[in-house]
Simulated assay, not measured.
Amino acid sequence: MKWLAAALLCILPLPAAAQSAMPPAPLADRQLDDPRLEAAARELMHTLRCVMCQGQSIADSDAPMAGDMRHQVRSRIAAGESAEDVRAWLKARYGDYISYQPELNRVTWPLFAVPALLLLFAALVFFRRVRVAAKPRR
């Protein structure tokens, strides 16, 4: 029983140790001075997915990773890069999953093809049932 208590005392502090001791990135929550650049950065942030939260954009997420990504977006926009250049850099770094607007390529084609095939299958089933129901019974 003493070994169980000792094991618990060793395991319990682990979640607290997992928290990041790093300060947030400088531009994570601070807006750019130029309103036009900030608007471009905000628009881009709403189209990028947080890799930790997975259901939120980096603009809406409070995760430290999203803060780092917001910092990268703002600093690259402030440096003169276009939104598409920043998006391409983030996609190269994190993969196609980062974007809420996936492009059609050899990896993402099922995202586009499967819903169309399911819709076609449902239409075929529907019309076949309607045709069978419309036939006169003998």
Rank of each mutant, 00 (worst) to 15 (best):
residue 123 A to Y: 10
residue 15 P to K: 00
residue 137 R to H: 14
residue 129 R to T: 07
residue 26 P to W: 10
residue 129 R to A: 09
residue 5 A to M: 07
residue 35 P to M: 12
residue 7 A to H: 03
residue 41 A to P: 11
residue 78 A to V: 00
residue 24 P to F: 02
residue 119 L to D: 09
residue 62 D to N: 10
residue 96 D to E: 15
residue 36 R to W: 03
residue 135 K to P: 02
residue 69 M to Y: 05
residue 101 Q to R: 07
residue 77 I to Q: 01
residue 74 R to I: 06
residue 110 P to R: 08
residue 91 K to F: 00
residue 108 T to E: 10
residue 67 G to Q: 00
residue 54 Q to L: 14
residue 55 G to S: 12
residue 44 L to R: 01
residue 81 E to N: 11
residue 112 F to L: 11
residue 55 G to Y: 08
residue 82 S to P: 02
residue 31 Q to W: 12
residue 102 P to I: 05
residue 114 V to G: 09
residue 16 A to Q: 12
residue 30 R to G: 06
residue 116 A to E: 13
residue 64 P to V: 07
residue 27 L to F: 14
residue 39 A to E: 10
residue 43 E to G: 11
residue 70 R to S: 08
residue 99 S to G: 01
residue 99 S to N: 07
residue 117 L to Y: 04
residue 124 L to C: 15
residue 11 I to E: 05
residue 127 F to E: 04
residue 98 I to S: 02
residue 58 I to C: 07
residue 58 I to Q: 03
residue 72 Q to A: 15
residue 22 M to L: 12
residue 130 V to Q: 09
residue 20 S to D: 15
residue 60 D to K: 11
residue 36 R to K: 02
residue 37 L to F: 06
residue 13 P to R: 01
residue 116 A to K: 15
residue 39 A to N: 07
residue 26 P to S: 02
residue 71 H to S: 10
residue 109 W to K: 10
residue 73 V to F: 08
residue 48 L to Y: 03
residue 57 S to I: 04
residue 88 A to K: 12
residue 60 D to E: 14
residue 71 H to C: 07
residue 93 R to C: 03
residue 49 R to D: 00
residue 126 F to E: 01
residue 100 Y to L: 14
residue 30 R to C: 11
residue 19 Q to F: 14
residue 117 L to G: 09
residue 51 V to K: 05
residue 117 L to Q: 03
residue 2 K to M: 12
residue 89 W to Q: 11
residue 100 Y to H: 06
residue 131 R to L: 11
residue 112 F to D: 11
residue 5 A to H: 10
residue 1 M to L: 14
residue 118 L to Y: 07
residue 105 N to W: 04
residue 52 M to P: 03
residue 48 L to A: 00
residue 85 D to A: 14
residue 97 Y to V: 13
residue 8 L to D: 00
residue 130 V to G: 04
residue 10 C to Y: 05
residue 100 Y to A: 02
residue 12 L to Q: 03
residue 105 N to G: 12
residue 121 F to G: 15
residue 136 P to K: 15
residue 109 W to C: 09
residue 72 Q to C: 15
residue 71 H to V: 03
residue 59 A to K: 10
residue 91 K to S: 07
residue 92 A to F: 06
residue 27 L to S: 00
residue 107 V to N: 13
residue 68 D to M: 02
residue 92 A to I: 01
residue 68 D to F: 01
residue 41 A to C: 07
residue 85 D to I: 02
residue 89 W to L: 09
residue 44 L to H: 01
residue 77 I to L: 04
